[in-house]
Every structure is written in C-alpha cells, then in structure tokens.
Design a protein around this nucleic acid. Structure first.
Lengths: 116, 116
DNA sequence: AGTGCTGCTTTGATTTTCCTAGCAAGTATG
DNA sequence: CATACTTGCTAGGAAAATCAAAGCAGCACT
C-alpha cells in the first residue's frame, strides 16, 4: 500500500497532548510522591521532608514551588508567633488523587519492589 | 525527651512505597508519554520518535530500554531481510493504561495548556 | 548559653536529559 | 556503482536537574 502519497498527514496521533502536559509536572522526580504525601491532609515543610525518604530539602523546596505555581497545592502561612507554614492540596490537586491511587495499586500488583 | 508522653509514632505514613516505586519509572521524563503512545498498538523506533514531539532519539532509546527492562513493554525483532523492530505493551504495561487515561482526563479538565 | 525545632537557601558534585551528529544496513532509483 | 532516503540505533558534549551537606534566622525549652 502507500505507494500513492508518501507524505500523508494521517499520523494517527499516537501522541497525547494532555498526557504530555500532565507529565511536564508529574514527570519530574518526586512531584507525584509529594502530592501523594499530601493526600492525608496538610503538612509542613519539615514533615514532608521527614516523610519522603530520599528527597533532599532543596528539591522538596523546588517541587513545592512548582506545584504551588501550577495550582495543585496551596501554601498557607500562619503568623503565629511561632510562624508555621502548611501545604495542602487544592481542588485541582485533589482531583488527581484517584489516578495516583490507581497507579499505586498498579505498582503493588505489577511491580517488584526489590531493585538495585 | 518527652519520657512517656510524646506520641512518637505519629508518622501516619504519609509516604506511599508503591507510589514511590511507580514513580521511579514514571517519574522520568517521557516514560509515561512513551507508554501512552504505545496504547494504540505496537510501533517502531522511528514511528515513536516522530510521534512524540520534543523527545530526542537518545532519550527515546534510554526510555525504551528501561521500560523493557522493567517489563512494561516488549521488544520484538522481525529479521526480515528488512529487519524491523517493534515495541508493544506487555500485560503489565497495559494494566497501567486506565490510570494514564485518567491522568490525561485530569489534565484536560484542570490544566492550562499555554505554558512557558 | 546550649540544644533542638521550624522553613527554607546556598554551595558544589554528580547524574540525567538534551541536541547534533553519525553509523550500519536495506530499499529505490538510475 | 552512486545517490538518496529509509530504519534502528549509538556517541560526544553541553545544559539542566538532582543530590548531600551545610548554613541561616526565628522561636522554644532548660
């Protein structure tokens, strides 16, 4: 087949723009894990740092900024006196939770957890 | 401190091991997009390269190797003469599609597509 | 004052990703 | 054979992301 026109435009669109856009955010190391950690409620910087093993403060700071900028989480400052900061999911962020949960279940079923 | 008082195991497990493991794979740039591109059926290297805009050959090669090693996709060589290679989702990879689809829908609803 | 908590930022080193080429092999022309 | 174009990759090196560790300011407890 295909001898007629070589440069046709029926590319079948294997590429999914929405998925690509989503993974501009989620495709960064730790983004999704940070979001997942916020699933059970608001948390402070140090709490997240402690909860997520392997993630350094500088990267956590970056992810938190990006996620806030993208509107997935919100940063709230309570000027105490002991000033405390807390991060929590926005509606947008919450809407992602079912998908994250599904991925989590997929991982448990299909992935091995001993890796080098 | 806090002899018998402080509730030390207050950790609430914010960290999700399965999610963390999943995003050891998916959290790499282009992994999920490559998988998504394979959802409509097998494809060759060049076809994927053309379909996914912005992804370079060297990175595609990396992702394909990793995804194959992790068992999400399979590489099949048909020694022609015109030798042709095709990649396709394994059962494991297919099982991830619903989640990817959900993320795609989430992106369409909640994300803006004009970004800098 | 000393120690530890909080929320970050800064400093390099290491790793990953990216872009530009290029290779080997096959097909299609002439 | 030569040229041109395909396929499936790999190499080199630069740019960006990630890393661990330390530092800093503010507040609390002792």
């Amino acid at each position: 087949m295909g001898t007629a026109s070589t440069h046709d435009t029926h590319a079948c669109v294997r590429s999914d723009a929405a998925l690509t856009r989503a993974f501009t955010i989620l495709g960064k190391r730790w983004s999704a894990v940070v979001l997942g950690s916020l699933r059970s409620g608001p948390a402070g910087f140090r709490e997240l740092s402690r909860a997520i093993d392997g993630l350094s403060d500088s990267v956590l700071s970056d992810r938190l900024s990006e996620l806030t900028k993208e509107g997935l989480i919100a940063r709230t400052v309570d000027a105490g006196p002991p000033v405390s900061v807390s991060y929590e999911l926005t509606e947008c962020g919450k809407a992602l939770m079912p998908a994250l949960h599904q991925i989590s279940e997929w991982a448990e079923k299909h992935l091995s957890f001993e890796e080098g």
